[in-house]
Design a protein around this nucleic acid. Sequence first.
DNA 1: TTGTGACTCCTAGTCCGTT
DNA 2: CAACGGACTAGGAGTCACA
Lengths: 80, 80
Amino acid sequence: MEIREAFAQNLRTLRRAKGLSQEELAHQAGIDRTYISALERNVYNASIDVVDRLAEVLGVDVAELLKRPPANPRDSSLNE
Amino acid sequence: MEIREAFAQNLRTLRRAKGLSQEELAHQAGIDRTYISALERNVYNASIDVVDRLAEVLGVDVAELLKRPPANPRDSSLNE
DNA sequence: TTGTGACTCCTAGTCCGTT
DNA sequence: CAACGGACTAGGAGTCACA
């Protein structure tokens, strides 16, 4: 799978795990609300400083946001 | 330090560690040579797919390219 | 072998709104 | 609360000639 897709999924998962709304996350990271929404829907290729700012607010390492999910042997086509 | 600066340094270090010229790396990653040069000089905020492509060619994890160097207590201002 | 300026083209990213 | 639209500006993506 493309890295931006993994990033989109991780962003949404981690944001929810933190109990934050898109708007709260956007505000804390100094990023536009609609842009967060777009990133989670895999619309854009985020730049590394945006990823870094988001990771900081979410309290995780950048690597955590960019990590690809382990491939599932059962349904190989879903995550590549 | 900003993440793009860390990325610039890591890119140059890892490329040289692999014994590759900018041109060789550029060719293998499907990127223009002068663009690699610019990235290593911290001219741009690279997008995550570019970082991903470079990491792949260099045979390292994306996290390796984005890792900040450990701060040196001696000269605190150099790496921030 | 790499740095740099100049130059396009297109997307990242913001801001307004409505559903 | 989130998806989504249009309109807009800054800056990334990509190439070339030349030092």
